[in-house]
Design a protein around this nucleic acid. Structure first.
Lengths: 155, 155
DNA sequence: GTCCGTTTACTCGGATAGTCGCTGTCCGAGTTGTTAGGG
DNA sequence: CCCTAACAACTCGGACAGCGACTATCCGAGTAAACGGAC
Protein backbone atom coordinates (compact mmCIF):
# COMPACT_ATOMS: atom_id res chain seq x y z
CA UNK A 1 0.00 0.00 0.00
CA UNK A 2 2.25 2.72 -1.27
CA UNK A 3 1.65 5.32 -3.93
CA UNK A 4 4.25 6.05 -6.57
CA UNK A 5 6.02 9.35 -6.16
CA UNK A 6 4.98 10.05 -9.73
CA UNK A 7 1.52 10.87 -8.38
CA UNK A 8 2.89 13.96 -6.67
CA UNK A 9 4.75 15.00 -9.79
CA UNK A 10 1.71 14.47 -11.99
CA UNK A 11 -0.56 16.38 -9.66
CA UNK A 12 1.69 19.42 -9.48
CA UNK A 13 2.29 19.38 -13.23
CA UNK A 14 -1.45 19.23 -13.83
CA UNK A 15 -2.10 22.19 -11.55
CA UNK A 16 0.67 24.11 -13.26
CA UNK A 17 -0.68 23.33 -16.72
CA UNK A 18 -4.05 24.56 -15.50
CA UNK A 19 -2.44 27.97 -14.97
CA UNK A 20 -1.16 28.24 -18.52
CA UNK A 21 -3.21 30.91 -20.34
CA UNK A 22 -5.81 29.69 -22.85
CA UNK A 23 -4.43 27.13 -25.29
CA UNK A 24 -0.76 27.59 -24.43
CA UNK A 25 1.65 24.70 -24.23
CA UNK A 26 4.43 23.82 -21.85
CA UNK A 27 7.49 21.80 -22.70
CA UNK A 28 8.64 18.81 -20.73
CA UNK A 29 11.82 20.58 -19.77
CA UNK A 30 9.97 23.64 -18.51
CA UNK A 31 7.85 21.47 -16.24
CA UNK A 32 10.91 19.67 -14.92
CA UNK A 33 12.80 22.88 -14.25
CA UNK A 34 9.85 24.50 -12.54
CA UNK A 35 9.78 21.80 -9.85
CA UNK A 36 13.40 20.69 -9.96
CA UNK A 37 12.56 17.22 -11.23
CA UNK A 38 14.63 14.87 -13.42
CA UNK A 39 13.30 15.49 -16.90
CA UNK A 40 13.98 12.00 -18.23
CA UNK A 41 11.95 10.27 -15.56
CA UNK A 42 9.21 12.87 -15.50
CA UNK A 43 8.57 12.03 -19.14
CA UNK A 44 7.47 8.56 -18.12
CA UNK A 45 4.64 9.93 -16.01
CA UNK A 46 3.61 12.61 -18.49
CA UNK A 47 3.46 9.85 -21.04
CA UNK A 48 1.12 7.84 -18.80
CA UNK A 49 -1.12 10.85 -18.26
CA UNK A 50 -1.28 11.39 -22.00
CA UNK A 51 -2.23 7.77 -22.64
CA UNK A 52 -4.96 8.06 -20.00
CA UNK A 53 -6.45 11.08 -21.74
CA UNK A 54 -5.62 13.61 -19.03
CA UNK A 55 -2.98 15.46 -21.00
CA UNK A 56 -2.60 16.18 -24.67
CA UNK A 57 0.85 16.17 -26.25
CA UNK A 58 2.12 18.00 -29.31
CA UNK A 59 5.35 17.05 -31.02
CA UNK A 60 7.87 19.16 -32.90
CA UNK A 61 8.99 22.75 -32.40
CA UNK A 62 6.63 24.88 -30.31
CA UNK A 63 5.25 21.61 -29.04
CA UNK A 64 4.53 20.56 -25.46
CA UNK A 65 1.77 19.44 -23.14
CA UNK A 66 -1.61 20.87 -22.28
CA UNK A 67 -4.61 19.67 -20.34
CA UNK A 68 -6.88 17.53 -22.49
CA UNK A 69 -9.97 19.02 -20.81
CA UNK A 70 -10.85 22.11 -18.78
CA UNK A 71 -9.24 21.97 -15.34
CA UNK A 72 -12.64 21.86 -13.65
CA UNK A 73 -13.46 18.63 -15.48
CA UNK A 74 -10.32 16.80 -14.37
CA UNK A 75 -10.55 15.21 -10.95
CA UNK A 76 -7.67 14.24 -8.72
CA UNK A 77 -8.77 10.66 -9.18
CA UNK A 78 -8.25 10.99 -12.92
CA UNK A 79 -4.61 11.93 -12.37
CA UNK A 80 -4.00 9.24 -9.77
CA UNK A 81 -5.52 6.52 -11.92
CA UNK A 82 -3.57 7.73 -14.93
CA UNK A 83 -0.29 7.14 -13.11
CA UNK A 84 -1.10 4.32 -10.72
CA UNK A 85 -3.37 2.38 -13.04
CA UNK A 86 -6.94 1.30 -12.52
CA UNK A 87 -6.35 -2.07 -10.86
CA UNK A 88 -8.02 -2.50 -7.48
CA UNK A 89 -5.55 -2.63 -4.58
CA UNK A 90 -7.19 -5.66 -3.01
CA UNK A 91 -7.57 -8.74 -5.19
CA UNK A 92 -9.69 -11.46 -3.60
CA UNK A 93 -8.21 -14.87 -4.30
CA UNK A 94 -11.19 -16.70 -2.83
CA UNK A 95 -9.17 -18.66 -0.33
CA UNK A 96 -12.46 -19.47 1.42
CA UNK A 97 -13.00 -22.00 -1.36
CA UNK A 98 -9.64 -23.66 -0.86
CA UNK A 99 -8.14 -25.94 1.76
CA UNK A 100 -9.71 -28.28 4.27
CA UNK A 101 -12.33 -25.78 5.42
CA UNK A 102 -13.36 -24.89 1.88
CA UNK A 103 -16.83 -23.49 1.41
CA UNK A 104 -19.03 -25.06 -1.26
CA UNK A 105 -19.84 -23.01 -4.38
CA UNK A 106 -23.41 -22.81 -3.09
CA UNK A 107 -22.21 -21.15 0.12
CA UNK A 108 -20.28 -18.63 -1.96
CA UNK A 109 -23.34 -17.26 -3.67
CA UNK A 110 -22.81 -14.10 -1.66
CA UNK A 111 -19.51 -12.29 -2.26
CA UNK A 112 -16.72 -12.77 0.23
CA UNK A 113 -17.34 -10.32 3.07
CA UNK A 114 -13.65 -9.57 3.41
CA UNK A 115 -13.60 -8.53 -0.22
CA UNK A 116 -16.73 -6.42 0.24
CA UNK A 117 -15.22 -4.48 3.12
CA UNK A 118 -11.99 -3.86 1.26
CA UNK A 119 -13.88 -2.76 -1.82
CA UNK A 120 -16.05 -0.36 0.14
CA UNK A 121 -12.98 1.25 1.62
CA UNK A 122 -11.44 1.59 -1.82
CA UNK A 123 -14.60 3.17 -3.16
CA UNK A 124 -14.58 5.65 -0.27
CA UNK A 125 -11.00 6.53 -1.20
CA UNK A 126 -11.93 6.98 -4.84
CA UNK A 127 -14.96 9.09 -3.99
CA UNK A 128 -12.81 11.38 -1.88
CA UNK A 129 -10.36 11.88 -4.71
CA UNK A 130 -13.14 12.33 -7.23
CA UNK A 131 -14.70 15.14 -5.22
CA UNK A 132 -11.83 17.54 -5.92
CA UNK A 133 -10.87 18.88 -9.33
CA UNK A 134 -7.59 20.30 -10.55
CA UNK A 135 -9.30 23.63 -11.03
CA UNK A 136 -10.29 23.74 -7.37
CA UNK A 137 -6.74 23.02 -6.31
CA UNK A 138 -5.54 26.02 -8.30
CA UNK A 139 -7.99 28.36 -6.59
CA UNK A 140 -6.76 27.15 -3.20
CA UNK A 141 -3.18 28.13 -3.91
CA UNK A 142 -1.76 31.32 -2.38
CA UNK A 143 -2.33 34.29 -4.66
CA UNK A 144 1.32 35.24 -4.54
CA UNK A 145 2.19 31.87 -6.05
CA UNK A 146 -0.43 32.26 -8.76
CA UNK A 147 0.97 35.69 -9.63
CA UNK A 148 4.51 34.42 -9.87
CA UNK A 149 3.43 31.51 -12.04
CA UNK A 150 1.54 33.84 -14.36
CA UNK A 151 4.69 35.87 -14.76
CA UNK A 152 6.89 32.82 -15.32
CA UNK A 153 4.49 31.20 -17.77
CA UNK A 154 4.04 34.28 -19.93
CA UNK A 155 7.81 34.54 -20.43
CA UNK B 1 -1.09 1.27 -4.84
CA UNK B 2 -1.37 -2.45 -4.25
CA UNK B 3 -2.17 -4.36 -1.11
CA UNK B 4 -0.14 -7.36 -0.11
CA UNK B 5 -1.93 -10.66 -0.51
CA UNK B 6 -1.07 -11.29 3.12
CA UNK B 7 -3.94 -8.97 4.02
CA UNK B 8 -6.44 -11.48 2.71
CA UNK B 9 -4.73 -14.31 4.57
CA UNK B 10 -4.59 -12.32 7.79
CA UNK B 11 -8.22 -11.31 7.57
CA UNK B 12 -9.48 -14.84 7.05
CA UNK B 13 -7.23 -16.22 9.76
CA UNK B 14 -8.52 -13.57 12.16
CA UNK B 15 -12.14 -14.41 11.40
CA UNK B 16 -11.37 -18.09 11.86
CA UNK B 17 -9.63 -17.50 15.18
CA UNK B 18 -12.69 -15.54 16.25
CA UNK B 19 -14.69 -18.73 15.86
CA UNK B 20 -12.47 -20.77 18.18
CA UNK B 21 -14.42 -21.46 21.41
CA UNK B 22 -13.40 -19.40 24.49
CA UNK B 23 -9.65 -19.41 25.10
CA UNK B 24 -8.76 -22.14 22.64
CA UNK B 25 -5.67 -21.99 20.48
CA UNK B 26 -4.98 -22.83 16.88
CA UNK B 27 -1.69 -23.96 15.48
CA UNK B 28 -0.04 -22.36 12.49
CA UNK B 29 -0.34 -25.56 10.52
CA UNK B 30 -4.06 -25.87 11.24
CA UNK B 31 -4.65 -22.35 9.92
CA UNK B 32 -2.62 -23.08 6.78
CA UNK B 33 -4.44 -26.33 6.09
CA UNK B 34 -7.84 -24.78 6.63
CA UNK B 35 -7.32 -22.32 3.79
CA UNK B 36 -4.81 -24.27 1.71
CA UNK B 37 -2.02 -21.75 2.29
CA UNK B 38 1.76 -22.31 2.39
CA UNK B 39 2.51 -22.65 6.07
CA UNK B 40 6.03 -21.22 5.87
CA UNK B 41 4.97 -17.96 4.31
CA UNK B 42 1.82 -17.63 6.36
CA UNK B 43 4.01 -17.56 9.44
CA UNK B 44 5.48 -14.29 8.28
CA UNK B 45 2.12 -12.58 8.39
CA UNK B 46 1.00 -14.18 11.64
CA UNK B 47 4.26 -12.94 13.06
CA UNK B 48 3.47 -9.39 11.95
CA UNK B 49 0.00 -9.58 13.43
CA UNK B 50 1.47 -10.77 16.72
CA UNK B 51 3.98 -7.92 16.80
CA UNK B 52 1.16 -5.45 16.13
CA UNK B 53 -0.82 -6.75 19.09
CA UNK B 54 -3.66 -8.27 17.10
CA UNK B 55 -2.78 -11.89 17.82
CA UNK B 56 -1.22 -13.57 20.82
CA UNK B 57 1.19 -16.46 20.31
CA UNK B 58 2.03 -19.33 22.65
CA UNK B 59 5.09 -21.50 22.17
CA UNK B 60 5.68 -25.15 22.92
CA UNK B 61 3.36 -28.16 22.84
CA UNK B 62 -0.34 -27.26 22.90
CA UNK B 63 0.73 -23.82 21.72
CA UNK B 64 -0.70 -21.74 18.91
CA UNK B 65 -2.37 -18.42 18.14
CA UNK B 66 -5.38 -16.67 19.57
CA UNK B 67 -6.91 -13.23 19.22
CA UNK B 68 -5.29 -10.76 21.58
CA UNK B 69 -8.65 -9.05 22.21
CA UNK B 70 -12.35 -9.87 21.80
CA UNK B 71 -13.27 -10.07 18.13
CA UNK B 72 -15.61 -7.09 18.48
CA UNK B 73 -12.71 -4.90 19.56
CA UNK B 74 -10.53 -5.71 16.55
CA UNK B 75 -11.25 -3.65 13.46
CA UNK B 76 -10.40 -4.55 9.91
CA UNK B 77 -8.07 -1.57 9.93
CA UNK B 78 -6.13 -3.13 12.80
CA UNK B 79 -5.43 -6.22 10.72
CA UNK B 80 -4.56 -4.27 7.58
CA UNK B 81 -2.17 -1.98 9.42
CA UNK B 82 -0.59 -4.94 11.18
CA UNK B 83 0.39 -6.48 7.86
CA UNK B 84 0.82 -3.47 5.60
CA UNK B 85 2.39 -1.17 8.15
CA UNK B 86 1.25 2.23 9.32
CA UNK B 87 3.11 4.39 6.80
CA UNK B 88 0.93 6.74 4.77
CA UNK B 89 0.65 5.77 1.10
CA UNK B 90 1.30 9.30 -0.12
CA UNK B 91 4.47 10.98 1.08
CA UNK B 92 4.67 14.66 0.18
CA UNK B 93 8.15 15.60 -0.90
CA UNK B 94 7.37 19.30 -1.02
CA UNK B 95 8.41 19.73 -4.61
CA UNK B 96 6.60 23.07 -4.55
CA UNK B 97 9.61 24.39 -2.64
CA UNK B 98 12.09 23.15 -5.21
CA UNK B 99 13.08 24.20 -8.70
CA UNK B 100 12.77 27.48 -10.55
CA UNK B 101 9.18 28.08 -9.49
CA UNK B 102 9.86 27.31 -5.83
CA UNK B 103 7.51 28.82 -3.28
CA UNK B 104 9.03 30.70 -0.38
CA UNK B 105 8.79 29.18 3.13
CA UNK B 106 6.35 31.93 3.98
CA UNK B 107 4.03 30.86 1.17
CA UNK B 108 4.18 27.31 2.49
CA UNK B 109 2.67 28.20 5.83
CA UNK B 110 -0.42 26.33 4.72
CA UNK B 111 0.08 22.63 3.96
CA UNK B 112 0.41 21.56 0.35
CA UNK B 113 -3.12 21.19 -1.01
CA UNK B 114 -2.16 18.14 -3.00
CA UNK B 115 -1.00 16.51 0.19
CA UNK B 116 -4.21 17.52 1.97
CA UNK B 117 -6.40 15.93 -0.66
CA UNK B 118 -4.41 12.71 -0.65
CA UNK B 119 -4.48 12.59 3.13
CA UNK B 120 -8.23 13.14 3.26
CA UNK B 121 -8.76 10.26 0.88
CA UNK B 122 -6.51 8.03 2.98
CA UNK B 123 -8.42 8.98 6.11
CA UNK B 124 -11.69 8.12 4.38
CA UNK B 125 -10.22 4.74 3.51
CA UNK B 126 -9.09 4.17 7.07
CA UNK B 127 -12.45 5.25 8.50
CA UNK B 128 -14.21 2.77 6.25
CA UNK B 129 -11.98 -0.06 7.42
CA UNK B 130 -12.28 1.02 11.04
CA UNK B 131 -16.07 0.86 10.94
CA UNK B 132 -16.14 -2.92 10.63
CA UNK B 133 -14.91 -5.37 13.25
CA UNK B 134 -13.79 -8.95 12.92
CA UNK B 135 -16.74 -9.96 15.07
CA UNK B 136 -19.16 -8.40 12.63
CA UNK B 137 -17.58 -10.23 9.73
CA UNK B 138 -18.16 -13.53 11.52
CA UNK B 139 -21.87 -12.81 12.00
CA UNK B 140 -22.19 -12.06 8.29
CA UNK B 141 -20.91 -15.47 7.28
CA UNK B 142 -23.36 -18.16 6.12
CA UNK B 143 -24.58 -20.22 9.04
CA UNK B 144 -23.66 -23.45 7.31
CA UNK B 145 -20.04 -22.31 7.21
CA UNK B 146 -20.11 -21.35 10.89
CA UNK B 147 -21.50 -24.78 11.75
CA UNK B 148 -18.84 -26.60 9.79
CA UNK B 149 -16.12 -24.51 11.37
CA UNK B 150 -17.48 -25.23 14.84
CA UNK B 151 -17.29 -28.92 14.06
CA UNK B 152 -13.79 -28.71 12.60
CA UNK B 153 -12.44 -26.56 15.42
CA UNK B 154 -13.77 -28.77 18.20
CA UNK B 155 -11.97 -31.77 16.73
C1' DG C 1 6.55 39.14 -53.73
C1' DT C 2 4.72 34.49 -53.40
C1' DC C 3 4.71 29.62 -53.37
C1' DC C 4 6.85 25.17 -52.74
C1' DG C 5 10.24 21.75 -51.46
C1' DT C 6 14.04 20.66 -48.65
C1' DT C 7 16.44 20.99 -44.66
C1' DT C 8 16.89 21.32 -39.86
C1' DA C 9 16.07 21.58 -35.23
C1' DC C 10 13.03 20.42 -31.73
C1' DT C 11 9.46 17.60 -29.34
C1' DC C 12 7.60 13.42 -27.42
C1' DG C 13 7.59 8.10 -27.20
C1' DG C 14 9.41 3.64 -26.40
C1' DA C 15 13.30 0.46 -25.31
C1' DT C 16 16.90 -0.41 -21.84
C1' DA C 17 19.63 -1.14 -16.94
C1' DG C 18 19.47 -0.54 -11.64
C1' DT C 19 17.39 -0.90 -7.06
C1' DC C 20 13.93 -1.74 -3.38
C1' DG C 21 10.27 -4.37 -1.35
C1' DC C 22 7.18 -8.27 -1.45
C1' DT C 23 7.31 -13.42 -2.12
C1' DG C 24 8.73 -17.84 -0.65
C1' DT C 25 11.61 -21.05 2.30
C1' DC C 26 14.41 -22.91 5.83
C1' DC C 27 16.49 -23.86 10.34
C1' DG C 28 17.33 -22.39 15.22
C1' DA C 29 15.67 -20.53 20.14
C1' DG C 30 12.37 -21.16 23.60
C1' DT C 31 8.84 -23.57 26.09
C1' DT C 32 6.05 -27.18 27.87
C1' DG C 33 4.64 -31.90 28.49
C1' DT C 34 6.67 -36.27 29.55
C1' DT C 35 9.23 -39.66 31.77
C1' DA C 36 12.55 -41.90 34.59
C1' DG C 37 14.70 -42.12 38.96
C1' DG C 38 15.05 -41.42 43.89
C1' DG C 39 12.97 -40.74 48.44
C1' DC D 1 3.00 -43.46 46.16
C1' DC D 2 4.97 -38.69 45.52
C1' DC D 3 8.36 -35.37 44.19
C1' DT D 4 12.14 -33.79 41.37
C1' DA D 5 15.02 -33.23 37.52
C1' DA D 6 16.53 -34.26 33.03
C1' DC D 7 14.82 -35.27 28.47
C1' DA D 8 12.46 -34.83 24.29
C1' DA D 9 9.17 -33.10 21.22
C1' DC D 10 6.64 -29.39 19.61
C1' DT D 11 5.76 -24.41 18.70
C1' DC D 12 6.87 -19.84 17.08
C1' DG D 13 10.58 -16.36 15.60
C1' DG D 14 14.13 -14.58 12.80
C1' DA D 15 17.71 -15.15 9.03
C1' DC D 16 18.35 -16.33 4.01
C1' DA D 17 17.42 -16.52 -1.60
C1' DG D 18 14.17 -15.25 -5.69
C1' DC D 19 11.26 -12.28 -8.38
C1' DG D 20 8.47 -8.35 -9.96
C1' DA D 21 7.57 -3.45 -9.92
C1' DC D 22 9.03 1.15 -9.44
C1' DT D 23 13.14 4.15 -10.39
C1' DA D 24 16.21 6.24 -13.51
C1' DT D 25 18.22 7.07 -18.17
C1' DC D 26 19.13 7.21 -23.02
C1' DC D 27 18.44 7.44 -27.94
C1' DG D 28 15.34 7.16 -31.98
C1' DA D 29 10.70 8.32 -34.63
C1' DG D 30 7.83 11.95 -35.89
C1' DT D 31 6.60 16.74 -36.63
C1' DA D 32 6.42 21.51 -37.60
C1' DA D 33 8.93 25.58 -38.27
C1' DA D 34 12.43 27.87 -40.98
C1' DC D 35 14.96 28.72 -44.96
C1' DG D 36 16.36 28.88 -49.72
C1' DG D 37 15.27 28.75 -54.45
C1' DA D 38 12.18 28.98 -58.42
C1' DC D 39 8.37 31.27 -60.60
Amino acid sequence: MKLSQGVEWGMHCATLLAQVPDGGLMRREALAVHYGLPEAYLSKHLQAMTRAGVLQATSGPKGGYRLARPADEITVLDVVRAIEGTAEPFICQEIRQRGKGASSPDECRLPCQVNSVMRSAYQAWEASLRSVTIGELVTRMPKSVLKRNQRLLSA
